[in-house]
Each structure stands twice: as structure tokens, then as C-alpha cells.
């Protein structure tokens, strides 16, 4: 791969804490190798800021291999930047050209308050899981793993939903800041398996109620969530959740 160095202008959201109003600051990123990842470019910029006695830019990141779901930058109007099926940590600088101006913001949603700069608080997602995103089985209760065969197609579909990394890009992309893709991925993962069956109805009712309580918006089926999802979680999960919800609501009124 040919590699070269490029110079960029960065407009980055700076916000001291959740009470601060926040503003954009402009930085020059000079001599950036196109082999760097987007976060490595931020590392270089931060090293320079520290040497100049300035406050480095705070951002969430951890595994840097696209699976932990921690990184969360809104780059040029798109969660995780221009590449599809990708996380910010896996975006590489060859996606940009000499002289580009790149705008970087945090996820913006009422339910994801900014902690500092590009870091947000996504604990609302944990609370949605607490509302029912599990199978109530205590350690030690299990029967043999092969005692209950599961149709391969169903197991595969369940896995496809379970691949969600909980990054919140779906919420950030949605004009309503809806968490329907995230919530429906967990509902689908468990509804498609026999192990999820006993709590199927209470699960969907409770998780949706919690989602609403956290302040996430409603879904209007624009599909923006699916388009930016790093794991390509399908919007059909939302349809499945709606159907599960309807059926559970009717049953619960019996």
C-alpha cells in the first residue's frame, strides 16, 4: 500500500463537563500518515496539545479493534465516519485527502449526556438491558447444552442480532435519537431462541418501557440507524420487536 502524509484541519467539539455549553475548536493536524487510524491521529494531536500545555481532547476508546463499542465519534455528520460497517477505531486516515476539514462531535442525544469533549454517558443502554435483556437462569441450573436442538437458521439470526456492540451509533444517527435498533437487537437475540421463550412477553414490554423512560425518541423507519451500524444490525429487528410488543400487549390485557 502506498502511504503518504497529509495535513488536515480539524473542528472538534470541546466541552469541559456536562454543565458547560461547549464549542468547536479548530486544530491543525500536520504530517498525518495515511496508515494511521483515526484515533491514532487524535493520539498525535493530543501529544502535541500536551506539549503545548493545553488540555488534550477526551474521547472514549478501548479495544481499538472494532468490538468493544467504546469509541463514539460523530465525524463529518456521520457516526463513526465515512466508511460503512465500521467503528471509529477502524477508520483509517487514507479515507481523507490533503487539506480536508474534518468536523468531529460527540454522539448527540438527550439520553446520552456529554461527560467531557467527545465522551458521552451511555449508561441508559445498561438500564435497558437491566429491564429485561437477559434469561433468568442462575449458575448451576443448566441442562446439557445439546439437550435442546436449535434450528441453525434461527441460531444464526439470533447471533446476527447479538453481534450488537452497544456503541450507540444508531441513536446518534437517528433524527429522533431513538434506541429502537439497539433494543430490538436484544429482543430479537433472545426471542429467536427457545431459552428466551418463558420471559418473551415481559421482556419486550419492560425493555421498551425503560427505553421510553430514558428519553429516547420514537422510530419513524428512516433506516438511518441500520445504515451506520458497525455490525450491520438489520432494521428488520425493529419490525420483529414491534410485532413482539403488539402480541405481548394484547396478551397482557387478557
Amino acid at each position: 500500500m502506498e502511504h503518504k502524509n497529509i495535513n488536515l484541519k480539524l473542528k472538534v467539539w470541546r466541552q469541559k463537563n456536562s454543565n458547560d455549553n461547549g464549542t468547536f475548536e479548530t486544530y491543525d493536524a500536520k504530517n498525518i500518515s495515511t496508515e494511521m487510524s483515526f484515533l491514532e491521529m487524535f493520539d498525535v494531536l493530543n501529544e502535541d496539545l500536551i506539549k503545548e500545555g493545553k488540555d488534550p481532547i477526551a474521547f472514549d476508546h478501548d479495544c481499538r479493534e472494532g468490538i468493544c463499542g467504546m469509541c463514539s465519534m460523530y465525524i463529518d455528520g456521520r457516526p463513526h465516519g465515512p466508511w460503512t460497517a465500521n467503528t471509529t477505531c477502524q477508520l483509517h486516515m487514507r479515507a481523507f485527502n490533503e487539506g480536508d476539514t474534518v468536523v468531529v462531535e460527540p454522539w448527540r442525544a438527550k439520553a446520552f449526556p456529554v461527560i467531557k469533549d467527545l465522551m458521552v454517558d451511555r449508561s441508559a443502554f445498561d438500564r435497558i438491558i437491566q429491564a429485561g435483556g437477559y434469561v433468568s437462569v442462575n449458575t448451576g441450573n443448566a441442562v446439557d447444552g445439546n439437550s435442546l436442538p436449535i434450528e441453525k437458521d434461527k441460531a444464526d439470526a439470533s447471533f446476527a442480532a447479538a453481534m450488537c456492540i452497544g456503541c450507540g451509533a444508531c441513536v446518534a444517527a437517528c433524527k429522533n435519537s431513538s434506541a429502537m435498533l439497539f433494543t430490538s437487537a436484544k429482543v430479537s437475540h433472545l426471542a429467536l431462541l427457545p431459552q428466551g421463550e418463558p420471559e418473551r412477553q415481559t421482556r419486550v414490554l419492560n425493555m421498551v418501557a425503560q427505553m421510553d423512560k430514558e428519553g429516547f425518541g420514537a422510530c419513524t423507519n428512516t433506516g438511518a440507524c441500520e445504515a451506520v451500524c458497525p455490525k450491520e444490525i438489520s432494521i428488520s429487528n425493529i419490525a420483529r420487536m414491534n410485532s413482539e410488543y403488539l402480541s405481548a400487549s394484547l396478551n397482557s390485557e387478557k
Binding site: 437477559y134 434469561v135 437462569v137 449458575t139 448451576g140 441450573n141 443448566a142 441442562v143 446439557d144 447444552g145 445439546n146 435442546l148 436442538p149 436449535i150 434450528e151 441453525k152 441460531a155 444464526d156 439470533s158 447471533f159 447479538a162 437475540h189 433472545l190 431462541l193 431459552q195 428466551g196
Partner: peptide
């Protein structure tokens, strides 16, 4: 072996064969 049993019971979607077994 207990680990696999417990994870299956939790709903971990392990890879399966066409017969539905792990």
C-alpha cells in the same frame, strides 16, 4: 462442560450444525 451448558442456557448463540446441535 458446565460452562458450555450454562452459556447455552443464558442464550449464548453458539455456532450450530444443521441438525440443531452445537
Amino acid at each position: 462442560g458446565n460452562i458450555i451448558d450454562h452459556c447455552v442456557a443464558q442464550g449464548v448463540p453458539f455456532a450450530r450444525e444443521y441438525g440443531g446441535l452445537l
